[in-house]
Design a protein around this nucleic acid. Structure first.
Lengths: 214, 214, 214, 214
DNA sequence: CATGAATGAGCCTTCATTCAT
DNA sequence: AATGAATGAAGGCTCATTCAT
């Protein structure tokens, strides 16, 4: 996500460095911020610490970021839409394996940055972030809903499927990669989860049909 | 939950008042704390504010609570196990209606106190609370798992049911009463959710069987 | 020392009880104050503690004393002149044994109340007390000086005796009963000290003469 | 006395500045602390006041000192052994003039810093400081005692000299430079005091002998 | 009179941010 | 640009004193 996005959320940077050195410094600050936020929590981390961890002076922090919040926002902006599962157009072909792959990818992204651990704290604190996140979530939900609706029209799903509830369930199950998995991290786990989600949507025979079509 | 529970988490109160007047004051502080924590977040609320909101002086706060954290812990202690859904012994009789009723009850409890909104922030900050919560959650999960296992032995569930994954899904779906419902609050919503959970577990014909048995 | 004295230093009491019960309560507060002041220091002791130690409520403290300071002053007033050694008219008869007896008496008084341990802290804090104490000390010093002068006239003392310096030394040595003694508390210690003081004043032959006169 | 000494008493400094500017600031804080402690007493002085007096912000105080106590300890550490009189090896040569010189020096040191005025209050409050001070005092006393003993062996002192009592008296007389002198400050005063101390130890003829030997 | 809960001023301390070098 | 010392507002907490019961 570009600087343009940043501006949408957080306004102008005090200084967006062009030179390689400075860019590296900015990145170091972002990374230090991410690590310390995750380790200690957002509120428990202060600018001085972040600067020290990044190997720069306190003042330098403020050359690159307006304040701690902006650094956090920059982190989030880059990743906010990655925090939600990338589920769309999955009701065709082999939904189970498709989902399993997407969920695993998603998990790997989460695992890389771990920003999802920060989100709960931040959403309470920062209504702007909360709104933005909610917006993205809504979009995602609407996408799942429209997906389910078209599958319903095609008669692929359970007769009595309540689209909204199931869509919600899917979003929930897939965005919070069950912590159980965080320990195991086995491929099968994602397949199990994919199967669970598919069961919510497709009767066994329809699912079988979709699988063999492929 | 009794004072005894409190001790488990936070040790002795500086003063647990015996007189009615004082008890009322303590309750007012708890309630003010709850409201402000939910409204502004835990970290954004300070003892002075809570005291002012409860209509007492700052020093009075410290007569009843060691600090902000203890007030929060007192709130949580009373409610911690209510934050999790009360799901057990539901695989007999009519699971759908049973679940729907339990979920609605659970939702009403959550809605009353809204402490669940605080939990994410606090779990990051307070490892003691996090442990306690995780313990309760584990117990709940194990209960769901054993429930599923016995249903499986009786041949009531899907043949290919992965107990752990489904148990996790059930816990997740029922503990986070979908925010969507928080707006609507219709009875049907809980029935829809109950149906979704039942679908994860029972094949249609078995479910029908369980319903008519009753 | 009477209440009249108290007024000189600290003004009216909020309430001087006539009844026996109340008098006992006042005494209990004084005694608790004394004990706690000595044990923890004046500044480290608060009114609530004193009241609790005396077995009365916090508010009751303020019925009998304007504040902590007044309680302390009452203690001191009763004892201030006892904190200084009672040395006068000792240059006749057998000065050594006379002094030894007086010093021992003085030590016993100090040991009873131990208010002397408080004095250093209080003299820094309370200029009124400091003045009062200094006044008493001056009086005592002048008494010793005049005593020495008359002894000098009678040719009893060292030829080159500097009255002021010796008077000061005597006051110092006798008011601060050497801490060494506080441990041992032997009778001889006081005799040793008496001998030391006498040596400052009398040449051996004159001292011998005074002794045998008796 | 070095930083090493400080550590003995109070552990590491939060920050011992290297730059000259910062060192000057630290000195200003120490000096302000000293002045205000002496003027108002230790307990009556707070960090904000010290900072304001030194012309810095409150927060700056905490950059250089952990708290008020540490500042005080730094002051004391530098001076603790100067608070006691430097009396040793004085029983040879001309004890009177030697002592007079040493006492005058000692007085000048005391007068410069006036930390001795703080000591009584602090010894009550700070048991660590009290121990340290007592240790130094013991050492001093033992030194005086051994000095007296060797003089006794040489037959220089009064026949009936009680070493302990006299040593105590000497320490007392010399550490508390009589306040009387604080007013006058005449050279003779120190000579008078020296004479008094010598009289405690030496018979006139032996003293004369020691004087003429030189 | 006694009680002890309540008060709130004031101290200690932290830390986000500024700014002189 | 970078530095890191300095700032001072703000929160945490205590305790001398008051006052309703």
């Amino acid at each position: 996500m570009s600087e343009h996005q940043d501006e949408k959320v957080i306004g102008e940077y005090p200084y967006v460095p062009k030179q390689q050195r400075a860019q590296a410094k900015r990145q170091a600050l972002l990374e230090s911020g991410r690590l310390l936020f995750i380790e200690q929590g957002y509120e428990q981390t202060n600018a001085k610490e972040i600067a020290a961890h990044a190997g720069v002076a306190t003042g330098t922090f403020y050359r690159y970021f307006v304040d701690k919040r902006q650094l956090m926002m920059s982190l989030m902006n880059e990743q906010l839409d990655r925090l939600l599962p990338p589920i769309h157009d999955w009701t065709t072909n082999n939904p189970e394996s498709y989902l399993a792959i997407r969920l695993e990818e998603h998990y790997k992204q989460l695992d890389q940055l771990n920003l999802n651990l920060l989100l709960p704290e931040l959403l309470v604190k920062d209504s702007q972030l909360a709104e933005l996140f909610e917006e993205i979530r809504s979009k995602m939900l609407r996408r799942i809903i429209s997906n389910l609706r078209s599958a319903k029209k095609q008669g692929l799903v359970w007769d009595d499927l309540n689209v909204e509830t199931v869509a919600w369930s899917i979003l929930l199950l897939s965005e919070q990669i069950p912590e159980a998995m965080i320990q195991g991290r086995k491929k099968e786990d994602f397949q199990h989860l994919a199967k669970v989600i598919c069961r919510l949507v497709f009767p066994p025979e329809k699912l079988e049909q979709l699988k063999t079509n492929k």
